[in-house]
Nucleic acid binder design. Structure first.
Ligand SMILES: [Zn+2]
Length: 533
DNA sequence: ATTGCCGGGGA
DNA sequence: TCCCCGGCAAT
């Protein structure tokens, strides 16, 4: 298999040649089986042929003598063909013994003489006709053809034919020969049909085919399968119902790109003089991205590998945080878990295209888990496999522990002690104390937090809950405004975004593992209310 | 890479 | 309204 594949891929340009050659060879083999019968038909209906089916050595000595009559006399130097080693070999008549009806022939290729019964010798001119004819028959489709055709043939019919051919010369009786020829012809026709089908399939969208798929031959099914696969990546479940709506327009490239990577490329690659045939990748890259790429640039996205979470985020920061906060658990068994989040996300190239929702769960084993209807194609980075493996192996463990501890338990904690600092600025300080206490004990239990104690003391004593932060600074400036205006330009840009106070905020102070201790604002990722700038 | 937090949702 | 979180800018 592999060899076949590689072979095909191997030389695109050569394929043409190869195609013509192999068929020829194959046919050649076939011919041997066929030709004799043919000739015999013409020349005679000798019943005895059965005995000489072998096409070579003649043991039917006795009979041979009896029938030499109707055999034309062969002239020395006349070109003939005889069977030699199972192959028909060209030769020149050296001598024709009418008595024994044997012909001594000089094999051109082998360079020596052999003796053959007259009936085994075929005149060149006679067979010249059939041979070319046959050759044409088979050759035509292949050469004229469509590159795809030969390939298609390769799979089914060809092998069959080959097998037949192989068996033919060996021990096939004449009776079989005749039918065989017929079948062969049939095969040829079939091939042509298949070729046509392949072509159509290639040039058309899967949609067109999938309905009539049933009758479609191998190619069709293959194409469909590929399409499915592709769609599967993206739209998973959704695809089934709407599978049909790939339009010719939208999917011109996808189908053929996938349907028959190499063949298609050959079929349509005329523009591209090929050359380096690398791996499968090559065709893919050229075929697929090129047509559909367009203005879109590959964007790199990050997918969360956590078991049932197929989140896709745009920024590395995003997923990292996502993994950390969502899965690894903010606090809890932070223990010596460091940078683990790196293992829970994977990077992937997305043929971006302003998709409304780029979400796509590729890694998830279940096709139904997460899906994106958009036809974007996602390519896993090479590292993916590893990540996946890890995902499989490691996560469960953590999942249990971390999720159990940090996800469920802590979360409840947070809720309980939630302080409404964020929007309820005027809130009083009391709530803090209790909550801190609880958190402390909890923290202590889990692990000692270096920063916590100092910070906590500070925040606690200092002011756990800032009263509504007075806004003196702004108000005063009325007059200074003019001044400020001057500086405003410089500061203008910052207007949109705060300058970011230098003060450490809850996040930093308590650490992500103790989110429960953050002020509400911080928890909500709003401007910190506790440590204002 | 990390932190701060805006803007945009979901319930 | 509460709450969450992606993404982005500043560190
Ligand atoms: Zn805060």
């Amino acid at each position: 298999m592999a060899s076949v594949l590689s072979r095909r891929l191997g030389k695109r340009s050569l394929l043409g040649a190869r195609i013509s050659a192999p068929p020829l060879l194959g046919d050649g083999v076939l011919m041997m089986a066929q030709l004799p019968p043919l000739q015999t038909e013409h020349v005679k209906e000798s019943p005895r042929l059965a005995s000489c089916e072998d096409g070579r050595f003649k043991e039917p000595v006795a009979d041979s003598g009896g029938q030499g009559q109707n055999w034309p006399l062969l002239q020395p130097g006349q070109k003939v063909y005889v069977f030699y080693k199972g192959q028909e070999a060209p030769g020149l008549v050296e001598h024709h013994d009418l008595l024994s009806n044997e012909v001594k022939v000089l094999l051109l290729e082998q360079g020596f003489y052999v003796c053959r019964k007259a009936e085994e010798v075929r005149l060149a001119n006679i067979q010249a006709l059939p041979l070319p004819a046959l050759e044409m028959d088979l050759g035509a489709p292949a050469t004229t053809g469509y590159d795809a055709v030969p390939v298609a043939m390769d799979h089914g019919p060809t092998t069959e034919a080959a097998a037949a051919a192989a068996s033919g010369p060996r021990s096939v009786s004449r009776s079989i020969d005749v039918p065989k020829r017929k079948s062969d012809a049939a095969a040829v026709e079939m091939d042509e049909m298949m070729a046509a089908m392949v072509l159509t399939s290639l040039s058309c969208s899967p949609v067109v085919q999938s309905p009539p798929n049933g009758d479609a031959g191998i190619p069709a099914s293959q194409a469909v399968g590929d399409v499915w696969k592709e769609s599967g990546d993206m739209s998973d479940g959704g695809s089934s119902s709407t599978s049909g709506h790939w339009s010719c327009m939208s999917t011109p490239s996808p189908p053929h790109s996938e349907a028959s990577p190499k063949y298609s490329s050959e079929a349509f690659s005329s523009p591209r003089p090929d050359d380096g045939f690398e791996t499968d990748l090559d065709p893919f890259i050229f075929d697929e991205p090129a047509p559909r790429k367009r203005k879109n640039s590959v964007k790199v996205m990050y997918t969360c590998l956590w078991p049932s979470c197929g989140k896709v985020l745009r920024s590395i920061v995003g997923i990292k945080r996502h993994v950390k906060t969502q899965h690894l658990g903010d606090g809890a068994n932070s223990d010596q878990r460091k940078r683990e989040e790196d293992f829970y996300y994977t990077e992937m190239q997305v043929k971006d295209e302003a998709p409304p929702e780029p979400a796509a769960a590729v890694s998830s084993p279940t096709p139904t888990s997460v899906g994106a209807s958009s036809p974007i194609t996602i390519q896993q980075t090479p590292s993916q496999p590893e990540a996946l493996v890890l995902d499989q192996a490691v996560p469960p463990e953590h999942h249990l522990s971390s999720s159990a501890l940090s996800q469920s338990a802590p979360s409840s904690f947070w809720h309980i002690q939630a302080d409404h600092a964020y929007q309820a600025l005027p809130s009083i300080q009391i709530p803090v104390s209790p909550h801190i206490f609880t958190s402390i004990s909890w923290a202590a239990a889990t692990s000692t937090i270096p920063t916590l104690s100092p910070v906590r003391s500070r925040s606690l004593s200092f002011s756990e809950q800032q009263p509504p932060p007075p806004l003196p600074p702004p108000p005063p400036p009325p007059v200074l405004k003019s001044h400020l205006i001057v500086t405003s330009p410089l500061r203008a840009p910052s207007s949109s975004r705060k300058v970011r106070g230098e003060a450490k905020k809850c996040r930093k102070v308590y650490g992500i593992e103790h989110r429960d201790q953050w002020c509400t604002a911080c928890r909500w990722k709003k401007a910190c209310q506790r440590f204002l700038d």
